[in-house]
Amino acid sequence: MKKITLIAGARPNFMKIAPIIHAIKAAQANGKEIAYRLVHTGQHYDKKMSGDFFEQLDIPTPDKNLGAGGGSQSEQTASIMLGFEKELLENPADLVIVVGDVTSTMACAIVAQKLHTKVAHVEGGIRSNDWTMPEEINRLVTDAITNYFFTTSKVANENLIKSGVKQEQIFYVGNTMIDTLMKQRPRFNKPEIWDELQLKEKEYMVMTLHRPANVDQEEQIKSLMDEIIAHSKEVPLIFPVHPRTAKILNSLQISHPRLHMVEPLGYLEFNYLVEKSKAVITDSGGITEETTVMGIPCMTLRDNTERPETITEGTNELLGTDPKAIEPAMKLLFSGNWKTGSIPHLWDGNTATRIVDEILKLKEI
């Protein structure tokens, strides 16, 4: 019996883990000897991580919640490591699977290796090459001590090979985030604001901004917002905004009749808006993957990306953080000449099945 421990620390992690759980259950139903334990580190306390969230996305309630949220990055790392060490000693595993690039990813990988448990990293090998991002440090540390890499792109494979990883450790399987998107797409749910604001398909834009480089510098966020409002013609701008960012925007008195700052939305509601939008403006990585699959124009307000395939193949463009880049991008969008893009190889909804198939073949665990 192969015993797997799955780690999740934040909402996006659960969306990446959910398909793997479904694939393990399918393997069990076919008589395969594999079992899993789901551990939530509690890194992010999120009021939307309610029973509804798990029910909506068909995710089982975690077997263990370490409750390690809060504090500085170092305090959080230490708290997760202490909690997970106890958990893994009490419930030994043959393989610990970490996903993405949050603090929990790195912390649990370290604990597992110190307890001589093999580690698999889902989404291994992606790089922004920006060491000011805590996520990049998490990726580098995790990949330095990972045994098996499940990758989303050829670029990720190349990054790993360059860093000295052996070819036989790398499994190019696709993107589990897209497994979740494809499974849930028929169930996207119209949010209340659709009718409240009388939105029409392809006649509004969705915004998300959360990175400190954009939202913590008052002059920067004001310039970005001014440019977006000035060049988005008569189109409503729907901005699901974190309370902290809302406070900054309010203190700067950033408002406009077309700018609608709304509460953060659930997965099914947010993606309903994205799927029917004219375009998305964001500084998130995961959203660029989803817009690529849904064929929605995407403008990324960052100077780098760890998901270059969303640009080379998909519908995403990296505008950088200079507000002056917004006007030409908007002109291109409104002229109808935005690139159509294509869906990257293996982003087909079957990634988790490939991951579980490869795990079942591993002789070392």
Rank of each mutant, 00 (worst) to 15 (best):
N65W: 04
L38Y: 05
Q76T: 07
I20P: 05
S72K: 01
A18C: 09
T77K: 05
D46Y: 12
E55R: 11
M106P: 07
E75N: 08
A78K: 02
I24N: 14
F149Q: 11
S74I: 05
I110E: 01
F150Y: 15
D143R: 01
K86E: 14
V119M: 10
R37I: 13
A78Y: 06
I24Y: 11
N138D: 05
Q73W: 03
I97N: 00
G69H: 09
P62Y: 10
E85I: 08
V111N: 07
V122T: 09
H40N: 15
A112F: 02
E136Q: 06
S128C: 12
H40I: 07
T146A: 04
A68C: 14
Y148R: 14
G42H: 13
D52A: 12
H22L: 08
Q76A: 02
E136P: 00
I24F: 07
R37C: 12
L95H: 08
Q73I: 04
A18R: 03
I17M: 14
P92T: 10
V119I: 12
Y45L: 10
D63I: 03
R37Y: 09
M133W: 13
D130S: 07
K32C: 15
Y148L: 15
F150A: 08
K86C: 01
I20E: 11
G69T: 01
F149L: 06
M81G: 07
L57D: 00
M106C: 13
V98L: 03
A78I: 07
R37P: 08
L66G: 05
L89E: 10
P134V: 06
G42Y: 13
V98H: 02
N138T: 02
E75S: 01
E136R: 06
G83M: 09
N65M: 02
N129F: 10
A107T: 04
G71V: 06
I97D: 05
C108G: 13
G125V: 01
A120W: 12
P62F: 12
T105P: 07
F54N: 06
H40S: 14
K64T: 12
G100C: 08
S74A: 15
M49C: 09
L82W: 00
H22A: 15
E123L: 07
Q113P: 00
A29P: 14
K32N: 15
L95C: 09
I24R: 12
L57G: 04
I34V: 15
E136N: 00
G125L: 00
H44D: 09
P62I: 11
E123V: 10
Q43L: 13
F149D: 04
V39G: 04
V102P: 11
Y36V: 03
P19A: 15
T61H: 13
